[in-house]
Structure formats: structure tokens, C-alpha cells
């Protein structure tokens, strides 16, 4: 099968590699910025185009990967569905729940496979925690605490820095945690959120959320795009018979090059695995195409995640909890 990549930024490159690892061929690389399209296309032996519609409609495109900024997701999902192509769309599924619903209808109508990349469901550490929770290793879970984030993403001028486009750390990043909590603990009851969403002097976002699930489980989630450097994930799950902790800064491998004339260097923690979570989500996606297999994350799950993130931002504006 042939794969067209729309949006040749960080995620576009990553998914081109994952698709290649799965034995697929990259046929087109489309990016509004020609240099970006050409750079990726050259590396993967694909054709570079500026107009995504060309890549979508091409005969030698079977799968469309959507790794453009979030507000464009729906348009490209609908176009790809209309062209009868299977779709891998990055999270957040859309910039609003209305967009997600339209995208789902378009894919259903066309009878194509639509997959949304909520990759945290495939992270080995999160899978292990889920397995331990469901096995009852810590008794009955009462409280889930998650932390995720680091430096503000994107260079100055990047779409990440326009809150209208990215939705800030709550919508773009915490959506991972909101999805995972719902995945493991079921539907939410209500959510409360405070987020700073600053633009100056320094652009910073920092979001604090408490969500009560219908089961009674309470989730406290902190996400940051306000750290001076790095990226980290922490989890703490408290139960009636114990507690589980995870801390991404504790890694099996680290490297710190010696300082050179050009300035100080930084310690880089690494946690390599033979098969990456992104590879696992690709395997699940491919297994879903043209089969009765239900992937670990469905478009409806991705829609619910967007609804939770929307509710969080609504709570931030009203300073009151939002009920589901």
C-alpha cells in the first residue's frame, strides 16, 4: 500500500518512518511549505507536492496520514474519505467536537478506515500500569495523578503558539491524559480546569485539571508548556491496597556530551524499546484496514477526548466545573 503524508513537520517525518517500517511505501509528501515537502520526500523516495489534494487524490495513494496543524484535520479527513482513502489522523482529532463528528460521518459514509493517533494508549509503561490496575494489584483505584509536559513547543510564529489553532497545552497535550483516564476508568462526570495561556513576556501555558469519573475515581492532571527545558511524564495511581508510580526521568540510558567551546551541553535521558509505541499504533491501524478488527482507539474515543478537552477549556473560562 502507498502512503501520502500531509504535513511534513515533526510528526509527518515520524509517521513516514513508522509506515516504512511496516513495509508500506511513501508515495507523496505534501506540505504548504515546499521545502518541508521536498525534504521529507527526498528522504523517503516520494513525490513532493504543495497541494495536499493532489496527494489525496493520486491513484498511488491508499492511505492518507494527516499530520498538519489541528484546525486542518477535518478538511483533510473529509477529502480523503471522499476519495476513498484510509486515514491516519494525528490527535487532537479536530479543533472542535463538531469537526470530529463531521469527520466521523464522512469516513462512515465512504466506508474507509479512520484511525486517530492517541499514542499514549500504546506506551508500554501506560499499558503496564493499566494491566496492574485492572488486575487489582493496588486494590480498588481511587485517585489518578498524571503530569506531562516540558518546554513550549514550536518556534516563534509556529501554529502551536496560536492558542486559537492549538488550544494550548490543555487541548493539544493533556488530551493524551484525558483519553487515557477515560480508556482505563470509563466515562467522566465533571471536569474543572485552570490554565494560564500566557503570550507575553514569555509564552507559557500551564494547566491544572481535576476530573471526576462516573465510577467515582478522581483524576488530577497537571500539564505544562512552561518548563525552561526538557519533557517529562509522571504518573501516580492510588488504590485501596497500594500505589503505582511512574517517572520518565528515571531511564535506563542517558548521555551527556562533554562541554565544548560552543557552550554547555545537556543531559539527555533515553528509554529505548525495540518496538516503539508509534510502531504499535501503526500495526493496530493496518490490522484494522479492511477487517473486522477494532483498534485500541476508535474515532469515537478520539471524539470523546476532544469533548473532554473542550469541557476543560470551558471550565477555565467560567471558573466553574463543567458536567458531561
Amino acid at each position: 500500500m502507498n502512503v501520502a503524508i500531509l504535513g511534513c513537520g515533526g510528526m509527518g517525518r515520524l509517521h513516514a518512518q513508522m509506515a516504512t517500517n511496516c513495509g508500506l511505501r511513501i508515495s507523496y509528501c505534501a506540505d504548504a511549505v515546499r521545502k518541508a515537502a521536498k525534504g521529507l520526500a527526498d528522504d523517503f523516495g516520494a513525490k513532493a507536492v504543495v497541494d495536499p489534494m493532489k496527494a489525496i487524490e493520486a491513484k498511488d495513494t491508499d492511505i492518507v496520514v494527516i499530520t498538519t496543524p489541528t484546525p486542518s484535520h477535518e478538511t483533510f479527513v473529509s477529502a480523503a474519505a471522499a476519495a476513498g482513502k484510509h486515514i491516519f489522523c494525528e490527535k487532537p482529532f479536530g479543533r472542535s467536537s463538531e469537526e470530529c463528528k463531521r469527520a466521523i460521518r464522512a469516513a462512515e459514509k465512504a466506508g474507509v478506515t479512520l484511525f486517530v493517533g492517541h499514542v499514549v494508549r500504546y506506551f508500554q509503561e501506560f499499558e503496564l500500569m493499566r494491566e496492574r490496575i485492572q488486575k487489582g494489584s493496588i486494590g480498588k483505584t481511587g485517585w489518578v495523578k498524571l503530569f506531562r509536559g516540558g518546554i513550549f513547543p514550536g518556534a516563534p510564529g509556529s501554529w502551536f503558539r496560536d492558542y486559537k489553532q492549538s488550544g494550548g497545552v490543555t487541548f493539544d497535550c493533556m488530551i493524551h491524559d484525558l483519553d487515557w483516564v477515560r480508556y482505563v476508568f470509563g466515562e467522566p462526570e465533571r471536569i474543572f480546569c485552570q490554565t494560564i495561556m500566557r503570550t507575553e513576556p514569555t509564552q507559557l501555558d500551564y494547566s491544572q485539571v481535576t476530573m471526576r469519573m462516573k465510577s467515582g475515581v478522581i483524576a488530577t492532571i497537571i500539564n505544562t508548556w512552561a518548563a525552561p527545558s526538557g519533557f517529562k511524564v509522571k504518573a501516580e495511581i492510588c488504590g485501596s491496597k497500594g500505589m503505582i508510580q511512574f517517572d520518565s526521568t528515571e531511564t535506563p540510558l542517558g548521555a551527556e556530551p562533554r562541554q565544548t567551546g560552543s557552550g554547555p551541553t545537556m543531559f539527555v535521558p533515553m528509554s529505548p524499546v525495540a518496538v516503539s509505541p508509534y510502531q504499535l499504533e501503526w500495526q493496530d491501524f493496518i490490522a484494522t484496514i479492511g477487517s473486522g478488527h477494532t483498534p485500541r482507539v476508535t474515532p469515537l474515543d478520539a471524539l470523546r477526548a476532544v469533548e473532554m478537552a473542550e469541557a476543560a477549556l470551558k471550565s477555565n473560562s467560567s471558573k466553574e466545573p463543567v458536567k458531561f
Partner: peptide
């Protein structure tokens, strides 16, 4: 100035 609070009684059966 203000507070919102979720309470739980669920870690000790």
C-alpha cells in the same frame, strides 16, 4: 480568593 474542591473517600474502602 477562591477555591474549587473535589473530595474523595475511596482509598481505604
Amino acid at each position: 480568593k477562591s477555591v474549587y474542591c473535589e473530595l474523595g473517600n475511596q482509598l481505604h474502602n
